[in-house]
Amino acid sequence: MSRPSEFDLIRDCFASGYPLADDLITGVGDDCSVIRPPFPYDLAQSIDTQVADVHFPASAPAHLIASRALRCAASDLAAMGARPQGFHLALTLPDNDPSWLGDFADGLRRTAAQLGLPLLGGDTTRGTQLVITVAVQGYLPQGQRLERSGAQAGDDIWLSGPVGAAALILPTVLAAPATDNQATAPYYHPSVHLGFGQKLLSLASAAMDISDGLLQDAGHIARASDTGLSFDACSIPTAVSREHPRWSDCLTGGDDYQILFTASPENASAIEAAAMAESLSQCRRVGRVTAESGKVSVWDGAQLLNFQTQGYEHF
Rank of each mutant, 00 (worst) to 15 (best):
S5Q: 10
D8F: 00
R11E: 14
C13S: 06
G17C: 06
P19E: 08
I25A: 14
T26F: 03
C32V: 14
I35N: 01
A44F: 15
Q45L: 06
Q45R: 13
Q50N: 05
S59E: 11
I65A: 02
C72K: 14
A82G: 12
P98D: 02
G102V: 01
D103V: 00
D106G: 04
L108A: 08
T111R: 07
P118Y: 12
G122M: 01
T128N: 04
Q129E: 07
L130T: 04
V136Y: 03
G143H: 11
E147P: 02
R148S: 11
A153K: 13
D156N: 15
D156Q: 14
G164A: 06
A165N: 09
A165E: 08
A165L: 04
P171N: 02
T179F: 01
T184M: 04
V192P: 10
G197Y: 08
Q198E: 15
S202I: 07
S202H: 15
S202M: 11
M208R: 12
S211K: 07
D212A: 10
G213E: 09
L215A: 06
A224T: 04
A233D: 13
T238Y: 01
L251P: 11
G253H: 07
Q258L: 01
T262G: 12
A263L: 10
E266I: 13
S269E: 15
S269T: 15
I271A: 10
L280Y: 11
L280K: 11
Q282D: 15
C283G: 07
R284A: 15
R288D: 09
T290I: 07
T290Y: 09
S297G: 02
W299D: 03
Q303E: 14
N306G: 14
F307K: 06
G311P: 01
Y312W: 06
